[in-house]
Amino acid sequence: MRNPAEPMLQVDDLHAFYGKSHILHGVSFTVGRSEIVSLLGRNGVGRSTTIKAIMGDVPPHGSIRFKGHEIAGLRPHQVARLGLGYVPENRDVFPSLTVEQNLLLGCKSSKPTGRWSYEDVYRIFPRLRERATTPAGVLSGGEQQMLTMCRTLMGDPDLVMIDEPTEGLAPMVVELVGNLLTEIAQRGVSILLVEQKLAIALRISHRLYVMGHGQIVFEGTPDDLAANAQVRRDWLEV
């Protein structure tokens, strides 16, 4: 039934609209098993829209196959239940609930059952253990970012899509986030990373895509991108 050679996620000719404006113009890419793939590009080129369309939060037009299922047209909670995790850019913690309660809501049943336990989360980010009973709304930006990432992991996704995890974080926290991403991939979870910062993407990604004007304009390895000054100048550097 399932072809083992088929990638974890395969997006083909994806279009998306906000009202009448056409945001995505036929985006195609793949993410393999345990692979870290980055989606780069300047603000407003459609990176966030791409992952929202995959989640079903923005209506997608085109084909999205995840673990062999066609998921275009499914509702967000159905997509999530198939094993696709999403970490939003705006650090959407549930402010009135405690850190621990936020983590609990990441689980799809009453207890964590998959690759991740509370203990894992608290080991990677000891700050979250210290603040386990604090309402999430009073955490710092960095702590909220850690919490949103870990909350999604508690649901044991097979692929996580992470939108700008290092935006506005102090360098030391960026380092922590980078370590977590590596640990996620080591546990056999694929990552689709949306980033603007080239450095972290080049350091941890296996493959990269660059987007411009709602389309993919470059595909390659970090080495390919490092060697291609033209793409960086035209589509990435400000």
Binding site: M55, D57, R75, P76, H77, V79, A80, R81, Y86, P88, D92, F94, P95, S96, L97, L105, G106, K108, R151, T152, G155
Partner: peptide, 14 residues
Amino acid sequence: QAALTHPDMVAMLG
């Protein structure tokens, strides 16, 4: 409680 303020995020957690 979470769905009162963040229904979209709650849905995307499954």
